[in-house]
C-alpha cells in the first residue's frame, strides 16, 4: 500500500535538488513488463531500473514502445505481466490505489494537454487543490513561484491558447511539478514543437536534471540525451536492445539494431 508521503519542504520542492540527495536508492524498477493492445504486442518483457536523481533517456523509433512504457509506469495502462516497483512498492498490485501513485509521479505529454478552459494558473493549481487538498491561496502562491522560476509569471492569467507551443509545454511541466513528484515522466515533450521552440523546453528539463529530479524521458533529441542522460536506453519492437552511458550507446553502439537506428537518425540530420 502506498500512502502519500508527508510533504515536507525538503522532500517536496523540485527546485532544491540537493536536499533530495540524502535519499539515494532505486526510484523505479520495471520488471518483465508486457503490454499488448489486442493482437498488437507493444511491450515484450521490459526490465529497467531508475535510481533517484538519474535521468534516463528512452530512444527508439516511433512504435518501439517508449510511450506505452511511460504510460504503464504512470499506471495509465494496465500491464499484462510483470511489475512496476516505485520506491519499494509494487504499484501494479491490485491492492494499490493507482490515483495515490500518480500523485507522486509527474507526466508530461507530447501534445501538452493543458486544460483549454482554464487559465494557466488554474491549470497548475487544480490538482494540488483538488487532489492534495491545498488551499487555493497556498497552491496559487506556489504556482506563481514555479511560473516565475521558468519565466512564465506574466502568463499566469492567460488561457493556454494564447501561449506558444513552447510556453504551453513549459506550463505543462510546471503543472506536473506543482504536485511535487518524486519521478517525472516526459513523453517526447518537444516532438510537437516548432524547431525554434525546442530549446526553451529542453532548458527547463536541463534545470530539473541539475536540481536532481529523477526523470524517465522518451525523446528523439539525441544531442540532449547525450548531454543530459545518466543512461540511454534503446528500445526496439517492445524490448530493450541496449542501454548504457550516452557515450557508449550513442557513440559506440554494440548492437546492430542500435547502429541501424542511429544511422537513420544521423542521415535525417537529427544528431
Amino acid at each position: 500500500m502506498i500512502r502519500p508521503a508527508p510533504r515536507t519542504a525538503a522532500a517536496g520542492t523540485a527546485s532544491s535538488g540537493t536536499s533530495q540527495a540524502a535519499a539515494t536508492g532505486t526510484a523505479l524498477r520495471i520488471e518483465g513488463v508486457h503490454k499488448a493492445f489486442g493482437a498488437n504486442r507493444v511491450l515484450k518483457g521490459v526490465d529497467l531500473a531508475v535510481d533517484t536523481h538519474q535521468v534516463i533517456c528512452l530512444i527508439g523509433a516511433s512504435g518501439s514502445g517508449k510511450s506505452t512504457l511511460l504510460r504503464c509506469v504512470d499506471l495509465l495502462e494496465t500491464i499484462d505481466a510483470g511489475r512496476v516497483v516505485f520506491f519499494g512498492h509494487d504499484v501494479t498490485s491490485p491492492a494499490v490505489d493507482e490515483i495515490l501513485v500518480r500523485r507522486q509521479m509527474g507526466m508530461v505529454f507530447q501534445s501538452f494537454n493543458l486544460f483549454p478552459h482554464l487559465r494557466v494558473l488554474r491549470n497548475i493549481t487544480l490538482a494540488p487543490v483538488k487532489a492534495l487538498g491545498m488551499t487555493v491561496a497556498d497552491a496559487g502562491e506556489e504556482a506563481m513561484a514555479l511560473l516565475a522560476r521558468f519565466g512564465l509569471a506574466d502568463k499566469a492569467h492567460d488561457y493556454p491558447d494564447r501561449l506558444s507551443g513552447g510556453q504551453q509545454q513549459r506550463v505543462a511541466i510546471v503543472r506536473a511539478l506543482a504536485m511535487h513528484p518524486k519521478l517525472m515522466l516526459l513523453d517526447e515533450v518537444t516532438s510537437a514543437l516548432d524547431p525554434e521552440l525546442v530549446g526553451e523546453v529542453l532548458d527547463v528539463i536541463r534545470e530539473l536534471a541539475a536540481g536532481g529530479m529523477t526523470m524517465l524521458i522518451a525523446t528523439h533529441e539525441m544531442g540532449f540525451a547525450r548531454e543530459t542522460a545518466t543512461r540511454v536506453v534503446f528500445l526496439e519492437d517492445g524490448v530493450i536492445v541496449e542501454e548504457g552511458p550516452p557515450s557508449q550507446v550513442l557513440d559506440a553502439p554494440r548492437d546492430e539494431r542500435t547502429k541501424r537506428f542511429l544511422g537513420r537518425v544521423l542521415s535525417a540530420g537529427r544528431m
Binding site: D74, L76, I99, R102, R103, N113, A131
Partner: peptide, 16 residues
C-alpha cells in the same frame, strides 16, 4: 481522451 489522460496523470479522481 488526452484531456482525461492528463487529468488522471495529475492524480485527480474520476469524479473530480
Amino acid at each position: 481522451l488526452s484531456q482525461v489522460a492528463s487529468a488522471r496523470s495529475l492524480g485527480l479522481r474520476p469524479r473530480t
